[in-house]
Write a protein that binds this DNA or RNA. Structure first.
Length: 467
DNA sequence: ATGTCC
């Protein structure tokens, strides 16, 4: 039986390229052709692909056939890219690899692109680079926001000396083990309840109705990859505005996003954008939605819901940890770094500012630029620099790919680095080792025009997903 | 990033 099952790979072999064609094919075959062998199914599908006009009136295969004929008709009215890409400002050029500029050039060749900038931690991503900022007029690029919509930072500051962390080390570790949840599919042991789950937006589209159940299960969880929850030392420095003396305090810092909800929204609307916005193949990831269309307004609404959900997840994490430990924060700093906003720029126009792995840095706006599991990160105050579209980096940026880090580094080497830094790590893996990241201090030196540092955060007990 | 394809 198992070898009757069609996989994406099988479909790719017969030149089923788009996600939509592949998912239609799998649905139709499992529903109406379940007694066919895999070979027979592939034979049917290949013929539909090669001779779609023969199947257009077929009650079952017609919908799939029209996918292929439509494509060939559609390709005649592709969106034209600009011959010369618009200029964009680069911060920290020496930290950024060549392909990243090419990706940004492509972004600035879109007819909707008005302004752009690269942050000093920029590197390649799907569509817009991570660390890329793109300003468009009345249009949103789902992959300009990223798959993890509302990926964000949240810091709680406590009026407690950091020595408390050493004295109550065991309780802090237990709190992280008992009150956070990493990885896919995991569920928190305690009841989650938050008004975000009652938001009426969840009832307004079939997609959001479908994703609501997952949102309920995943509320207050953290996900995987570079996401973390950590306790550490906050050092407030000159120019801070927290109403406390300069010095060191206990802090709680979290990094995560909107989990399956945002991923589902991003996938869905980038798919619609690709159908509506016919870009050449190599630029497909930049497909956009106009904000005055129904789909565009829907994405904007769903994106904002995912952003609020991501915030709710952080709020739950902080609330549950504080309750477990019997402590109360005196201040909070938080910011999205994967999102799009309507913002007025210096000319007085309102543009759609996409920040994909970039920290909002409007004048006086506070944000968090995290380090690695051992490296100190920063609490910053934006300067509202126009040439960066009021943005800054969202971290140090990777120096090594995940695979590269795994191949060139060992567990025992990581243990040494952690113990030297006095950091306890729960979970985590080689691919997130500090050595896989650029030096954040060098990156910060490239953005002194963008932000002022008002505090530092040094991790002490870090929880991440298991590698 | 993601129950990594409905």
């Amino acid at each position: 039986m198992g070898n009757h099952k069609l996989r994406g790979k099988d479909l790719k072999n017969i030149n089923y390229e788009t996600d939509k064609a592949k998912s239609l094919a799998i649905d139709i075959m499992s529903m109406h052709y379940k007694h066919y062998t895999k070979q027979e199914k592939l034979k049917v599908l290949l013929d539909v692909k090669n001779n779609p006009e023969h199947y257009l009136s077929d009650p079952i295969l017609g919908v799939l056939a029209s996918e292929f004929t439509c494509r060939s008709l559609k390709s005649k009215k592709e969106v034209q890219l600009l011959k010369a890409p618009g200029e964009f400002k680069v911060f920290g050029r020496k930290h950024i690899a060549d392909q990243t500029y090419q990706q940004m050039d492509l972004a600035m060749s879109l007819p909707i692109a008005e302004r752009g900038a690269l942050m000093p931690d920029a590197h390649m991503g799907y569509g817009l680079p991570i660390g890329g900022v793109l300003a468009t007029r009345n249009a949103v690029v789902p992959y300009g926001v990223g798959l993890d919509i509302g990926c964000r930072m949240s810091l709680s500051l406590f009026d407690i000396a950091p020595g408390y962390l050493k004295r109550k080390n065991y309780q802090f570790k237990m709190a992280l083990k008992e009150r956070t949840c990493f990885g896919s599919g995991g569920v928190l042991s305690i009841q989650q309840d938050h008004e975000i789950l009652d938001r009426k937006e969840f009832t307004t589209t079939p997609l959001l109705r479908q994703l609501h159940g997952k949102a309920v299960k995943q509320l207050g969880t953290s996900g995987s990859g570079n996401h973390f929850v950590e306790f550490g030392e906050v050092e407030l420095v000159d120019g801070h505005d927290f109403g406390m003396p300069l010095g060191k305090y206990l802090g709680l810092l979290s990094h995560s996003g909107s989990r399956g909800l945002g991923a589902g929204i991003a996938r869905h609307y980038t798919g619609i954008a690709r159908e509506k916005c016919l870009l050449p193949n190599y630029a497909q990831h930049f497909a956009w939605l106009n904000l005055d269309t129904e789909e565009g307004m829907e994405y904007w609404m769903a994106m904002n819901l995912a952003g609020d959900y991501a915030k709710a997840c952080h709020d739950q994490i902080h609330r549950h940890l504080c309750k477990y430990l019997g402590i109360k924060p005196v201040a909070t700093v938080e910011n999205h770094h994967n999102f799009a906003w309507k913002e007025k720029i210096e000319t007085g126009e309102t543009l759609v500012i996409h920040r994909k792995g970039a920290t909002p840095a409007g004048k006086g706006v506070l944000g968090i630029i995290p380090g690695s599991m051992t490296a100190t990160g920063y609490i910053v105050r934006g300067k509202g620099e126009q040439s960066s579209l009021s943005s800054a980096s969202h971290g140090a940026g990777r120096k090594m790919s995940r695979a590269q880090a795994k191949n060139s580094y060992t567990k025992s080497a990581l243990k040494k680095v952690l113990s030297k830094a006095g950091v306890s790590l729960i979970g985590g893996g080689i691919d997130e080792a500090p050595i896989a990241y650029k030096d954040l201090d060098e990156v910060m030196a490239s953005q002194t025009d963008l932000v002022d540092v008002i505090g530092r955060f040094t991790p002490k007990i870090v929880r991440m997903d298991k590698a």
